[in-house]
Design a protein around this nucleic acid. Structure first.
Lengths: 180, 180
DNA sequence: CACGCTATTTATAACAT
DNA sequence: TATGTTATAAATAGCGT
């Protein structure tokens, strides 16, 4: 919005992101307050910032916020119930969906676990025997047995060509936006 | 805020007030969305407009999140042959991909958390004061734990990079979220 | 890194249709 | 009154301290 047109995307750089967040948070809260004042309406905003422990809210006074939300109770019961139920149902359904997605992620993370394990075996950071001490559950254990077999073959191949697997992985340290 | 400097006071004229409300509502929602996108945080806004009896909220309908795990399984079989050529790179890329997925899931969960919270406030099942204990939300907390667990395991496996999800929420260090 | 300072982009009050 | 346009105020990205 200024010296450069805004990129509507996640700001990767931590410092820039934090600076932007700080400025925009202030601007946003001001806007909410202005709208409330100018138009005489009740408004509320909730921000789950990655830097603040507690969510930023407007109005700052929980009582006032409560008052804003309490106004909902003055709405005709029919409309209210309808909308609320819809919203809540919708939200719960989406949460269920998310849980399923998390399960998938968990499963797929095991795949990656195996890949990493192979890497480590090949680079000498680990060895197939250590599988015995890895936490075992029926799923991953069954897979691991296969992996050991594969790993053995890979190791053989590797020994034929000579080695060369190595190097350290690096991370940008940017981290996830919600991390504190 | 333009041809005349803004007067921070209630706009008496009905037409003007309504016009201002409409424009500012749009601007505000845009700002909320921008802040959420740019800084990777979760945000919500509730406006009790004088004209509609149901509150305007943001996000109005976060449906765009189904794609979260879309391409996750996309691993062409042909690539698997090359896979061994540069395992570490490949694995690292997949890990990054997973992190991206986890990041999105986290944000998604957070968004739902906010929605649910607002819904509960509106229906009287909850109140703004309970913001103090938001972390107690069973569902979202469970999801967060799962996600954190994934990330933690990945971090352990990589045995490096201090970043990651790094949740602020308390973690009892519990075991695998296998069974849910 | 947090602040303060512009150069520009955005938002929008007043008009116009 | 609703929508579109324009002149101007407000917000803010990139810098400098």
């Amino acid at each position: 919005m200024t010296r450069r047109k805004v990129r509507l995307a996640y700001i990767v750089n931590h410092s820039e992101r934090k600076a932007s967040y700080k400025k925009r948070k202030r601007g946003l809260m001001k806007k909410v307050q202005e709208l409330s004042t100018l138009c005489g309406i009740d408004a509320a905003a909730v921000l789950y910032g990655p830097y603040d422990e507690r969510p930023e809210v407007w109005p700052e006074d929980p009582t006032a916020l409560n008052q804003v939300l309490a106004r909902f109770k003055a709405v005709p019961a029919s409309e209210k119930g309808k909308w609320m139920v819809d919203q809540e149902t919708f939200t719960r359904q989406r949460i269920e969906k998310t849980k399923e997605q998390v399960k998938k992620i968990l499963r797929d993370s095991r795949e990656k676990e195996i890949h990493l394990f192979i890497d480590q075996c090949l680079s000498g950071e680990n060895n197939p025997e250590s599988l015995q001490s890895q936490d075992a559950n029926d799923v991953s254990f069954a897979i691991k047995r296969n992996v050991m077999e594969i790993t053995r073959r890979l190791a053989l191949l590797k020994n034929q060509d000579g080695d060369g697997v190595g190097g350290a992985a690096a991370d940008d340290g940017g981290g996830l936006p919600q991390g504190h």
